[in-house]
Design a protein around this nucleic acid. Structure first.
Lengths: 248, 248
DNA sequence: GTGGCCAAGTGGTCATACCAATATACGTGT
DNA sequence: ACACGTATATTGGTATGACCACTTGGCCAC
Protein backbone atom coordinates (compact mmCIF):
# COMPACT_ATOMS: atom_id res chain seq x y z
CA UNK A 1 0.00 0.00 0.00
CA UNK A 2 1.09 3.52 -0.68
CA UNK A 3 -0.15 5.21 2.44
CA UNK A 4 1.84 4.66 5.55
CA UNK A 5 0.89 5.67 9.03
CA UNK A 6 0.48 9.39 8.56
CA UNK A 7 0.54 10.56 12.09
CA UNK A 8 1.98 7.71 14.14
CA UNK A 9 5.43 8.65 13.06
CA UNK A 10 5.85 10.06 16.49
CA UNK A 11 7.61 7.38 18.40
CA UNK A 12 6.23 8.13 21.82
CA UNK A 13 2.73 7.77 20.38
CA UNK A 14 3.57 4.34 19.04
CA UNK A 15 4.94 3.31 22.41
CA UNK A 16 1.85 4.68 24.15
CA UNK A 17 -0.45 2.83 21.75
CA UNK A 18 1.42 -0.39 22.30
CA UNK A 19 1.24 -0.14 26.07
CA UNK A 20 -2.41 0.88 25.95
CA UNK A 21 -3.17 -2.23 23.96
CA UNK A 22 -1.45 -4.37 26.56
CA UNK A 23 -3.53 -2.79 29.30
CA UNK A 24 -6.80 -3.00 27.40
CA UNK A 25 -6.25 -6.61 26.45
CA UNK A 26 -5.69 -7.44 30.07
CA UNK A 27 -2.15 -8.68 29.62
CA UNK A 28 -1.15 -6.19 32.25
CA UNK A 29 -3.29 -6.94 35.29
CA UNK A 30 -4.97 -4.13 37.19
CA UNK A 31 -2.80 -2.78 39.97
CA UNK A 32 0.27 -4.55 38.70
CA UNK A 33 3.52 -2.65 38.52
CA UNK A 34 5.24 -1.99 35.23
CA UNK A 35 8.99 -2.36 34.77
CA UNK A 36 11.06 0.70 35.57
CA UNK A 37 11.39 3.38 32.93
CA UNK A 38 14.98 2.46 32.25
CA UNK A 39 14.06 -1.19 31.72
CA UNK A 40 11.14 -0.29 29.47
CA UNK A 41 13.41 1.88 27.39
CA UNK A 42 15.84 -1.01 26.95
CA UNK A 43 13.09 -3.54 26.28
CA UNK A 44 11.45 -1.34 23.64
CA UNK A 45 14.72 -0.19 22.14
CA UNK A 46 13.99 3.50 22.64
CA UNK A 47 15.38 6.18 24.88
CA UNK A 48 14.11 6.90 28.33
CA UNK A 49 12.68 10.36 27.49
CA UNK A 50 10.55 8.72 24.79
CA UNK A 51 9.28 6.16 27.28
CA UNK A 52 8.50 8.96 29.72
CA UNK A 53 6.53 10.88 27.11
CA UNK A 54 4.51 7.79 26.29
CA UNK A 55 3.85 7.15 29.98
CA UNK A 56 2.65 10.72 30.46
CA UNK A 57 0.16 10.20 27.64
CA UNK A 58 -1.21 7.10 29.35
CA UNK A 59 -1.29 8.85 32.70
CA UNK A 60 -3.34 11.76 31.33
CA UNK A 61 -5.65 9.27 29.67
CA UNK A 62 -6.09 7.60 33.02
CA UNK A 63 -4.68 4.19 32.27
CA UNK A 64 -1.75 4.26 34.66
CA UNK A 65 -0.66 5.92 37.85
CA UNK A 66 2.91 7.17 38.11
CA UNK A 67 4.22 7.42 41.66
CA UNK A 68 7.46 9.21 42.19
CA UNK A 69 10.15 6.99 43.63
CA UNK A 70 7.86 3.99 43.67
CA UNK A 71 6.92 2.89 40.21
CA UNK A 72 4.23 2.80 37.51
CA UNK A 73 0.97 1.04 38.25
CA UNK A 74 -1.95 -0.03 36.07
CA UNK A 75 -5.14 1.72 37.13
CA UNK A 76 -8.31 -0.26 37.76
CA UNK A 77 -10.59 -0.03 34.75
CA UNK A 78 -13.15 2.62 35.41
CA UNK A 79 -14.89 4.98 33.06
CA UNK A 80 -11.92 6.25 31.18
CA UNK A 81 -13.53 6.93 27.84
CA UNK A 82 -12.57 10.36 26.75
CA UNK A 83 -11.70 9.26 23.31
CA UNK A 84 -10.78 5.66 23.93
CA UNK A 85 -13.68 3.63 25.24
CA UNK A 86 -12.08 0.19 25.12
CA UNK A 87 -15.01 -2.12 25.75
CA UNK A 88 -18.00 -0.91 23.81
CA UNK A 89 -16.02 0.70 21.07
CA UNK A 90 -18.19 2.35 18.50
CA UNK A 91 -17.20 2.01 14.88
CA UNK A 92 -17.99 4.39 12.06
CA UNK A 93 -20.92 2.39 10.72
CA UNK A 94 -22.49 2.29 14.14
CA UNK A 95 -21.99 6.02 14.43
CA UNK A 96 -23.68 6.64 11.11
CA UNK A 97 -26.67 4.55 12.11
CA UNK A 98 -27.05 6.49 15.33
CA UNK A 99 -26.77 9.72 13.41
CA UNK A 100 -29.43 8.56 10.96
CA UNK A 101 -31.84 7.94 13.79
CA UNK A 102 -31.20 11.19 15.61
CA UNK A 103 -30.28 13.70 12.95
CA UNK A 104 -33.18 12.82 10.64
CA UNK A 105 -35.59 13.62 13.43
CA UNK A 106 -33.63 16.75 14.23
CA UNK A 107 -33.68 17.95 10.62
CA UNK A 108 -37.42 17.38 10.46
CA UNK A 109 -37.99 19.48 13.56
CA UNK A 110 -35.47 22.09 12.45
CA UNK A 111 -37.42 22.68 9.23
CA UNK A 112 -40.39 23.70 11.35
CA UNK A 113 -38.49 26.09 13.61
CA UNK A 114 -35.87 27.59 11.30
CA UNK A 115 -35.45 31.37 11.31
CA UNK A 116 -33.72 33.49 8.64
CA UNK A 117 -30.52 33.82 10.67
CA UNK A 118 -30.31 30.05 10.94
CA UNK A 119 -30.45 29.73 7.17
CA UNK A 120 -27.84 32.46 6.90
CA UNK A 121 -25.55 30.48 9.21
CA UNK A 122 -25.98 27.41 7.02
CA UNK A 123 -25.20 29.46 3.92
CA UNK A 124 -22.06 30.81 5.51
CA UNK A 125 -21.00 27.29 6.37
CA UNK A 126 -21.58 26.10 2.81
CA UNK A 127 -19.57 29.00 1.42
CA UNK A 128 -16.68 28.22 3.73
CA UNK A 129 -16.86 24.55 2.80
CA UNK A 130 -16.68 25.38 -0.90
CA UNK A 131 -13.35 27.06 -0.22
CA UNK A 132 -11.95 24.29 1.95
CA UNK A 133 -12.63 21.14 -0.05
CA UNK A 134 -8.96 20.23 -0.19
CA UNK A 135 -8.16 20.93 3.45
CA UNK A 136 -9.01 17.82 5.42
CA UNK A 137 -8.89 19.45 8.82
CA UNK A 138 -10.92 22.47 7.79
CA UNK A 139 -13.47 20.45 5.84
CA UNK A 140 -14.03 18.08 8.74
CA UNK A 141 -14.51 20.98 11.12
CA UNK A 142 -16.99 22.63 8.76
CA UNK A 143 -18.88 19.37 8.30
CA UNK A 144 -19.24 19.16 12.04
CA UNK A 145 -20.27 22.80 12.09
CA UNK A 146 -23.06 22.25 9.58
CA UNK A 147 -24.70 19.51 11.59
CA UNK A 148 -24.30 21.42 14.82
CA UNK A 149 -26.00 24.46 13.25
CA UNK A 150 -28.93 22.31 12.13
CA UNK A 151 -29.19 20.94 15.64
CA UNK A 152 -28.92 24.37 17.20
CA UNK A 153 -32.09 25.46 15.40
CA UNK A 154 -34.05 23.33 17.86
CA UNK A 155 -32.31 25.15 20.71
CA UNK A 156 -32.03 22.08 22.88
CA UNK A 157 -28.79 21.81 24.83
CA UNK A 158 -29.07 18.05 25.31
CA UNK A 159 -29.40 17.36 21.61
CA UNK A 160 -26.70 19.88 20.76
CA UNK A 161 -24.32 18.18 23.11
CA UNK A 162 -25.08 14.72 21.78
CA UNK A 163 -24.59 15.70 18.17
CA UNK A 164 -21.46 17.65 19.02
CA UNK A 165 -20.08 14.65 20.91
CA UNK A 166 -20.81 12.30 18.04
CA UNK A 167 -18.87 14.46 15.65
CA UNK A 168 -16.04 14.91 18.11
CA UNK A 169 -15.50 11.15 17.93
CA UNK A 170 -14.46 11.64 14.35
CA UNK A 171 -11.53 13.73 15.56
CA UNK A 172 -9.94 10.81 17.40
CA UNK A 173 -6.78 9.19 16.02
CA UNK A 174 -8.66 6.04 14.99
CA UNK A 175 -11.14 7.93 12.86
CA UNK A 176 -8.53 10.34 11.54
CA UNK A 177 -6.57 7.44 10.20
CA UNK A 178 -9.63 5.83 8.72
CA UNK A 179 -10.79 9.10 7.20
CA UNK A 180 -7.48 9.54 5.42
CA UNK A 181 -8.43 6.57 3.27
CA UNK A 182 -11.62 7.86 1.77
CA UNK A 183 -11.84 11.58 2.31
CA UNK A 184 -10.79 13.75 -0.59
CA UNK A 185 -11.92 16.79 -2.51
CA UNK A 186 -14.56 14.84 -4.43
CA UNK A 187 -16.16 13.23 -1.39
CA UNK A 188 -16.27 16.57 0.39
CA UNK A 189 -17.82 18.16 -2.69
CA UNK A 190 -20.53 15.50 -2.77
CA UNK A 191 -21.13 15.94 0.94
CA UNK A 192 -21.42 19.68 0.42
CA UNK A 193 -24.07 19.25 -2.25
CA UNK A 194 -26.05 17.00 0.08
CA UNK A 195 -25.68 19.64 2.77
CA UNK A 196 -27.11 22.17 0.37
CA UNK A 197 -30.17 20.01 -0.22
CA UNK A 198 -30.71 19.86 3.53
CA UNK A 199 -30.30 23.60 3.78
CA UNK A 200 -32.86 24.16 1.01
CA UNK A 201 -35.42 21.90 2.64
CA UNK A 202 -34.99 23.65 5.97
CA UNK A 203 -35.19 27.08 4.36
CA UNK A 204 -38.42 25.99 2.64
CA UNK A 205 -39.85 24.85 5.99
CA UNK A 206 -40.48 21.41 4.54
CA UNK A 207 -40.05 18.87 7.36
CA UNK A 208 -40.51 15.79 5.21
CA UNK A 209 -38.00 16.99 2.65
CA UNK A 210 -35.51 17.92 5.36
CA UNK A 211 -35.74 14.46 6.86
CA UNK A 212 -35.34 12.86 3.44
CA UNK A 213 -32.37 15.04 2.58
CA UNK A 214 -30.62 14.27 5.84
CA UNK A 215 -31.34 10.59 5.39
CA UNK A 216 -29.92 10.72 1.87
CA UNK A 217 -26.82 12.51 3.11
CA UNK A 218 -26.09 9.92 5.78
CA UNK A 219 -26.87 7.04 3.42
CA UNK A 220 -24.41 8.45 0.92
CA UNK A 221 -21.83 8.88 3.67
CA UNK A 222 -22.20 5.23 4.50
CA UNK A 223 -21.82 4.27 0.86
CA UNK A 224 -18.64 6.34 0.59
CA UNK A 225 -17.33 4.69 3.71
CA UNK A 226 -18.20 1.21 2.46
CA UNK A 227 -16.41 1.84 -0.80
CA UNK A 228 -13.25 2.69 1.06
CA UNK A 229 -13.43 -0.63 2.84
CA UNK A 230 -13.84 -2.53 -0.41
CA UNK A 231 -10.80 -0.81 -1.84
CA UNK A 232 -8.64 -1.30 1.20
CA UNK A 233 -9.70 -4.68 2.48
CA UNK A 234 -6.12 -5.80 2.71
CA UNK A 235 -5.20 -3.19 5.27
CA UNK A 236 -5.09 -4.97 8.59
CA UNK A 237 -4.79 -1.72 10.49
CA UNK A 238 -8.56 -1.29 10.25
CA UNK A 239 -10.25 -3.41 12.93
CA UNK A 240 -12.32 -6.12 11.32
CA UNK A 241 -15.09 -5.52 13.82
CA UNK A 242 -15.82 -2.20 12.15
CA UNK A 243 -17.00 -3.92 9.06
CA UNK A 244 -19.87 -5.68 10.70
CA UNK A 245 -23.33 -4.21 10.94
CA UNK A 246 -24.22 -1.04 9.17
CA UNK A 247 -27.68 -2.17 8.24
CA UNK A 248 -29.53 -0.46 5.48
CA UNK B 1 -3.92 26.40 55.10
CA UNK B 2 -2.71 22.99 56.05
CA UNK B 3 -2.81 21.29 52.72
CA UNK B 4 -0.20 22.33 50.26
CA UNK B 5 0.02 21.22 46.69
CA UNK B 6 0.74 17.57 47.30
CA UNK B 7 0.83 16.46 43.75
CA UNK B 8 1.94 19.46 41.75
CA UNK B 9 5.47 19.04 42.88
CA UNK B 10 6.00 17.55 39.49
CA UNK B 11 7.31 20.43 37.51
CA UNK B 12 5.85 19.49 34.15
CA UNK B 13 2.42 19.43 35.78
CA UNK B 14 2.89 22.94 37.05
CA UNK B 15 3.93 24.11 33.62
CA UNK B 16 0.95 22.36 32.02
CA UNK B 17 -1.42 23.93 34.56
CA UNK B 18 0.00 27.35 33.89
CA UNK B 19 -0.36 27.07 30.12
CA UNK B 20 -3.84 25.59 30.42
CA UNK B 21 -4.89 28.60 32.43
CA UNK B 22 -3.59 30.92 29.75
CA UNK B 23 -5.56 29.08 27.09
CA UNK B 24 -8.77 28.86 29.10
CA UNK B 25 -8.61 32.53 30.04
CA UNK B 26 -8.32 33.39 26.38
CA UNK B 27 -4.94 35.08 26.71
CA UNK B 28 -3.74 32.72 24.03
CA UNK B 29 -6.05 33.21 21.07
CA UNK B 30 -7.48 30.20 19.25
CA UNK B 31 -5.32 29.09 16.40
CA UNK B 32 -2.41 31.20 17.51
CA UNK B 33 1.04 29.70 17.54
CA UNK B 34 2.99 29.29 20.74
CA UNK B 35 6.70 30.11 21.02
CA UNK B 36 9.07 27.31 20.14
CA UNK B 37 9.81 24.68 22.77
CA UNK B 38 13.30 26.03 23.28
CA UNK B 39 12.02 29.55 23.84
CA UNK B 40 9.30 28.35 26.22
CA UNK B 41 11.92 26.49 28.21
CA UNK B 42 14.01 29.60 28.55
CA UNK B 43 11.03 31.83 29.32
CA UNK B 44 9.77 29.50 32.03
CA UNK B 45 13.21 28.75 33.41
CA UNK B 46 12.91 24.99 32.96
CA UNK B 47 14.49 22.45 30.67
CA UNK B 48 13.15 21.54 27.28
CA UNK B 49 12.14 17.98 28.22
CA UNK B 50 9.99 19.42 30.99
CA UNK B 51 8.31 21.77 28.52
CA UNK B 52 7.76 18.88 26.13
CA UNK B 53 6.15 16.74 28.84
CA UNK B 54 3.83 19.60 29.75
CA UNK B 55 2.91 20.12 26.10
CA UNK B 56 2.14 16.43 25.69
CA UNK B 57 -0.25 16.66 28.62
CA UNK B 58 -2.08 19.56 26.98
CA UNK B 59 -2.13 17.80 23.64
CA UNK B 60 -3.72 14.67 25.11
CA UNK B 61 -6.21 16.87 26.90
CA UNK B 62 -7.04 18.46 23.57
CA UNK B 63 -6.02 22.03 24.25
CA UNK B 64 -3.22 22.29 21.72
CA UNK B 65 -2.14 20.72 18.47
CA UNK B 66 1.54 19.90 18.02
CA UNK B 67 2.62 19.75 14.40
CA UNK B 68 6.01 18.33 13.65
CA UNK B 69 8.34 20.80 12.02
CA UNK B 70 5.75 23.55 12.15
CA UNK B 71 4.89 24.59 15.68
CA UNK B 72 2.42 24.39 18.52
CA UNK B 73 -1.08 25.75 17.96
CA UNK B 74 -3.99 26.50 20.27
CA UNK B 75 -6.99 24.36 19.39
CA UNK B 76 -10.39 25.94 18.87
CA UNK B 77 -12.39 25.58 22.03
CA UNK B 78 -14.63 22.57 21.96
CA UNK B 79 -16.43 20.86 24.74
CA UNK B 80 -13.63 20.08 27.12
CA UNK B 81 -15.22 20.50 30.52
CA UNK B 82 -16.76 17.20 31.53
CA UNK B 83 -17.51 17.79 35.17
CA UNK B 84 -18.33 21.49 35.04
CA UNK B 85 -21.38 22.13 32.86
CA UNK B 86 -22.87 25.04 34.77
CA UNK B 87 -23.45 27.21 31.72
CA UNK B 88 -25.58 25.16 29.43
CA UNK B 89 -27.38 23.41 32.21
CA UNK B 90 -30.16 21.21 30.95
CA UNK B 91 -33.46 21.29 32.74
CA UNK B 92 -36.08 18.55 32.86
CA UNK B 93 -38.25 20.02 30.12
CA UNK B 94 -35.30 20.29 27.80
CA UNK B 95 -34.44 16.69 28.60
CA UNK B 96 -37.94 15.55 27.79
CA UNK B 97 -37.86 17.34 24.45
CA UNK B 98 -34.59 15.69 23.55
CA UNK B 99 -36.00 12.35 24.58
CA UNK B 100 -39.07 12.96 22.44
CA UNK B 101 -36.89 13.54 19.39
CA UNK B 102 -34.62 10.58 19.93
CA UNK B 103 -36.70 7.96 21.65
CA UNK B 104 -39.66 8.26 19.29
CA UNK B 105 -37.36 7.46 16.40
CA UNK B 106 -35.78 4.67 18.43
CA UNK B 107 -39.15 3.13 19.30
CA UNK B 108 -40.16 3.22 15.66
CA UNK B 109 -37.02 1.40 14.60
CA UNK B 110 -37.24 -1.01 17.53
CA UNK B 111 -40.68 -2.13 16.42
CA UNK B 112 -39.13 -3.27 13.17
CA UNK B 113 -36.25 -5.18 14.71
CA UNK B 114 -37.75 -6.59 17.91
CA UNK B 115 -37.16 -10.26 18.67
CA UNK B 116 -39.10 -12.42 21.14
CA UNK B 117 -36.43 -12.19 23.80
CA UNK B 118 -36.58 -8.40 23.63
CA UNK B 119 -40.31 -8.49 24.29
CA UNK B 120 -39.67 -10.92 27.12
CA UNK B 121 -37.20 -8.46 28.65
CA UNK B 122 -39.79 -5.70 28.44
CA UNK B 123 -42.38 -7.95 30.09
CA UNK B 124 -39.99 -8.77 32.90
CA UNK B 125 -39.36 -5.06 33.40
CA UNK B 126 -43.10 -4.34 33.54
CA UNK B 127 -43.65 -7.11 36.05
CA UNK B 128 -40.88 -5.74 38.27
CA UNK B 129 -42.29 -2.24 37.96
CA UNK B 130 -45.73 -3.44 39.08
CA UNK B 131 -44.14 -4.65 42.29
CA UNK B 132 -42.11 -1.52 42.91
CA UNK B 133 -44.59 1.31 42.41
CA UNK B 134 -44.06 2.61 45.92
CA UNK B 135 -40.28 2.39 45.93
CA UNK B 136 -38.99 5.58 44.34
CA UNK B 137 -35.45 4.42 43.79
CA UNK B 138 -36.45 1.06 42.39
CA UNK B 139 -39.16 2.54 40.19
CA UNK B 140 -36.79 5.10 38.76
CA UNK B 141 -34.20 2.43 38.02
CA UNK B 142 -36.81 0.26 36.32
CA UNK B 143 -38.08 3.19 34.29
CA UNK B 144 -34.55 3.78 33.08
CA UNK B 145 -34.26 0.06 32.41
CA UNK B 146 -37.36 0.03 30.22
CA UNK B 147 -36.10 2.74 27.93
CA UNK B 148 -32.65 1.22 27.76
CA UNK B 149 -34.13 -2.13 26.76
CA UNK B 150 -36.10 -0.47 23.96
CA UNK B 151 -32.93 1.20 22.78
CA UNK B 152 -30.93 -2.00 23.02
CA UNK B 153 -33.23 -3.63 20.46
CA UNK B 154 -31.51 -1.53 17.82
CA UNK B 155 -28.15 -2.83 19.04
CA UNK B 156 -26.36 0.46 18.56
CA UNK B 157 -23.82 1.32 21.24
CA UNK B 158 -23.87 5.03 20.49
CA UNK B 159 -27.63 5.31 20.94
CA UNK B 160 -27.56 3.07 23.98
CA UNK B 161 -24.99 5.28 25.60
CA UNK B 162 -26.88 8.46 24.81
CA UNK B 163 -30.17 7.20 26.21
CA UNK B 164 -28.43 5.74 29.23
CA UNK B 165 -26.69 9.05 29.85
CA UNK B 166 -29.92 11.00 29.57
CA UNK B 167 -31.57 8.85 32.19
CA UNK B 168 -28.53 9.01 34.42
CA UNK B 169 -29.05 12.76 34.63
CA UNK B 170 -32.26 12.06 36.49
CA UNK B 171 -30.18 10.55 39.29
CA UNK B 172 -28.52 13.86 40.11
CA UNK B 173 -29.45 15.75 43.30
CA UNK B 174 -31.35 18.45 41.40
CA UNK B 175 -33.57 15.97 39.67
CA UNK B 176 -33.98 13.81 42.74
CA UNK B 177 -35.31 16.75 44.65
CA UNK B 178 -37.57 17.77 41.83
CA UNK B 179 -38.82 14.24 41.36
CA UNK B 180 -39.81 14.00 45.00
CA UNK B 181 -42.50 16.57 44.27
CA UNK B 182 -44.42 14.73 41.62
CA UNK B 183 -43.42 11.11 41.68
CA UNK B 184 -45.71 8.81 43.60
CA UNK B 185 -47.44 5.48 43.24
CA UNK B 186 -50.09 6.90 40.94
CA UNK B 187 -47.68 8.60 38.55
CA UNK B 188 -45.56 5.49 38.35
CA UNK B 189 -48.67 3.40 37.69
CA UNK B 190 -49.65 5.72 34.85
CA UNK B 191 -46.12 5.58 33.46
CA UNK B 192 -46.21 1.80 33.64
CA UNK B 193 -49.42 1.64 31.62
CA UNK B 194 -47.85 3.88 28.99
CA UNK B 195 -44.85 1.59 28.97
CA UNK B 196 -47.15 -1.33 28.37
CA UNK B 197 -48.63 0.39 25.32
CA UNK B 198 -45.14 0.85 23.95
CA UNK B 199 -44.34 -2.77 24.64
CA UNK B 200 -47.51 -3.91 22.84
CA UNK B 201 -46.76 -1.82 19.77
CA UNK B 202 -43.21 -3.15 19.60
CA UNK B 203 -44.38 -6.73 20.09
CA UNK B 204 -46.89 -6.20 17.26
CA UNK B 205 -44.09 -4.89 15.02
CA UNK B 206 -46.06 -1.72 14.41
CA UNK B 207 -43.54 1.14 13.96
CA UNK B 208 -46.12 3.92 13.72
CA UNK B 209 -47.92 2.75 16.84
CA UNK B 210 -44.65 2.41 18.72
CA UNK B 211 -43.67 5.95 17.83
CA UNK B 212 -47.09 7.24 18.85
CA UNK B 213 -47.02 5.35 22.13
CA UNK B 214 -43.57 6.65 23.00
CA UNK B 215 -44.64 10.14 22.07
CA UNK B 216 -47.73 9.83 24.25
CA UNK B 217 -45.64 8.56 27.15
CA UNK B 218 -43.22 11.47 27.01
CA UNK B 219 -46.03 13.98 26.51
CA UNK B 220 -47.76 12.62 29.58
CA UNK B 221 -44.50 12.77 31.50
CA UNK B 222 -44.23 16.42 30.63
CA UNK B 223 -47.79 17.07 31.74
CA UNK B 224 -47.13 15.36 35.06
CA UNK B 225 -44.00 17.47 35.45
CA UNK B 226 -45.84 20.68 34.60
CA UNK B 227 -48.54 19.93 37.13
CA UNK B 228 -45.93 19.65 39.84
CA UNK B 229 -44.70 23.13 38.96
CA UNK B 230 -48.17 24.59 39.20
CA UNK B 231 -48.56 23.13 42.62
CA UNK B 232 -45.16 24.16 43.85
CA UNK B 233 -44.59 27.53 42.26
CA UNK B 234 -43.44 29.00 45.56
CA UNK B 235 -40.41 26.76 45.83
CA UNK B 236 -37.42 28.88 44.90
CA UNK B 237 -35.09 25.92 44.89
CA UNK B 238 -36.26 25.14 41.39
CA UNK B 239 -34.44 27.35 38.90
CA UNK B 240 -36.86 29.60 37.08
CA UNK B 241 -35.13 28.88 33.83
CA UNK B 242 -36.44 25.34 33.95
CA UNK B 243 -39.95 26.57 33.45
CA UNK B 244 -39.34 28.09 30.07
CA UNK B 245 -39.80 26.23 26.87
CA UNK B 246 -41.11 22.72 26.84
CA UNK B 247 -43.06 23.17 23.65
CA UNK B 248 -45.89 20.82 22.98
C1' DG C 1 5.75 33.85 -13.91
C1' DT C 2 6.44 29.21 -12.56
C1' DG C 3 8.53 25.42 -10.68
C1' DG C 4 11.93 23.11 -8.07
C1' DC C 5 15.60 23.36 -4.82
C1' DC C 6 17.77 24.57 -0.57
C1' DA C 7 18.35 26.34 4.06
C1' DA C 8 16.53 28.11 8.38
C1' DG C 9 13.37 26.92 11.94
C1' DT C 10 10.85 23.59 14.65
C1' DG C 11 9.39 19.43 16.74
C1' DG C 12 11.23 14.45 17.65
C1' DT C 13 14.65 11.47 19.56
C1' DC C 14 18.70 10.19 21.88
C1' DA C 15 22.47 9.80 25.51
C1' DT C 16 24.07 10.94 29.94
C1' DA C 17 24.22 12.77 34.30
C1' DC C 18 22.44 14.13 38.59
C1' DC C 19 18.55 15.20 41.96
C1' DA C 20 14.49 13.83 44.85
C1' DA C 21 11.23 10.69 46.71
C1' DT C 22 10.31 6.13 48.01
C1' DA C 23 11.02 1.39 49.41
C1' DT C 24 13.82 -2.08 51.42
C1' DA C 25 17.48 -4.04 54.21
C1' DC C 26 20.21 -3.77 57.93
C1' DG C 27 21.70 -2.87 62.46
C1' DT C 28 20.95 -0.99 66.88
C1' DG C 29 18.44 -0.38 71.08
C1' DT C 30 14.98 -1.89 74.09
C1' DA D 1 12.41 -11.30 69.92
C1' DC D 2 10.57 -7.06 68.51
C1' DA D 3 10.45 -2.10 67.29
C1' DC D 4 12.53 1.63 65.47
C1' DG D 5 15.65 4.50 62.80
C1' DT D 6 19.19 4.94 59.60
C1' DA D 7 21.75 3.57 55.35
C1' DT D 8 21.40 2.19 50.84
C1' DA D 9 19.34 0.70 46.58
C1' DT D 10 15.64 1.54 43.50
C1' DT D 11 12.78 4.52 40.84
C1' DG D 12 10.74 8.59 39.00
C1' DG D 13 11.94 13.80 37.95
C1' DT D 14 14.81 17.26 35.81
C1' DA D 15 18.69 19.16 33.27
C1' DT D 16 21.98 19.59 29.30
C1' DG D 17 23.47 19.10 24.78
C1' DA D 18 23.50 17.07 20.60
C1' DC D 19 21.61 15.35 16.36
C1' DC D 20 17.71 13.82 13.21
C1' DA D 21 13.27 14.48 10.53
C1' DC D 22 9.94 17.30 8.91
C1' DT D 23 7.83 21.81 7.49
C1' DT D 24 8.09 26.08 5.63
C1' DG D 25 9.27 29.83 2.92
C1' DG D 26 12.40 32.21 0.18
C1' DC D 27 15.75 32.10 -3.44
C1' DC D 28 17.27 30.78 -7.85
C1' DA D 29 17.14 28.67 -12.33
C1' DC D 30 14.30 27.94 -16.08
Amino acid sequence: MIFSAVESRRLYRQVADQMRSLIESGELAEGSRLPAERELAQMLGVSRPTVREALIVLEVEGFIDIRMGSGIYVNPRKRIGLDVPPDDFEGPFELLRARAVVECAVAEEAARLAQPDHVAALDANLAAMAAALEDRREALALDRGFHVIVSSIIANATLNRFIGDIHDMRMTPYFEKLASYFENGDTWRAAMEEHRAIRDAIAAHDPAAARAAMRAHLDQSQIRLSKSFEEETVDSSIPAAWRRAGGG
